[in-house]
């Protein structure tokens, strides 16, 4: 599976699959420029789900209406530019008033030990990061609450 095939599956999983339990992902952009970074994929969502009349009323009464996003970026598997990428996402979250975001970094091959430890030691609360090795199907994620929720969603290899 190459990165593009994987991103199509991830997009499908976000919009129609298990990610719907977390948020209602509705709009997906590919090759999306943001600052100096061009993300492979950028999907936006709201945590208030759609539904028929009663579901809508229940969601309106019980669920806060905030926005979240999922970014995919495969251009820097060594994570040499992780901080600028995270800064770009953090600026976007602040400017557009999004609550949190996921960053998925897919690659056809293993990640370096340094890259894995960088992700595991990340302390950002509002950005969850996952490194996805498409050949071994190994996932390394950040330890924040947002990052832990990402693990099941990025495992869409079949």
């Amino acid at each position: 599976m190459d990165v593009n095939d994987y991103l199509v599956r991830l997009e499908d999983n976000l919009m129609l699959g298990s990610a719907r339990w977390t948020a209602d992902f509705t709009e997906s952009f590919w090759e999306y420029p943001m600052g100096d970074v061009v993300f492979d994929m950028f999907v936006t969502a709201t945590v208030r789900p759609k539904g028929f009349f009663l579901s809508k009323v229940a969601a309106w009464l019980t669920t806060p209406n905030y926005y979240v996003a999922c970014f995919a970026y495969s251009q820097d598997p060594e994570l040499k530019h992780l901080h600028p990428v995270l800064n770009t996402i953090a600026t976007f979250l602040k400017q557009q008033e999004f609550a949190w975001a996921w960053l998925v970094v897919p690659q056809e091959g293993p990640f370096s030990r340094k890259a894995k430890s960088m992700v595991q030691s990340t302390t950002l609360r509002e950005i969850g990061i996952a490194l996805v090795d498409l050949s071994s199907q190994e996932v390394v994620n950040s330890e924040s609450h947002v990052g832990r929720r990402l693990v099941k969603i990025v495992r869409c290899f079949k």
Binding site: M15, L16, F25, T26, E27, F29, Y32
Partner: peptide, 16 residues
């Protein structure tokens, strides 16, 4: 300037 895929709900999609 931009093309996006939109999920309209219930498995129905549009290209925006």
């Amino acid at each position: 300037s931009q093309v996006s895929l939109v999920h309209e709900g219930y498995g129905r999609f549009a290209v925006r």
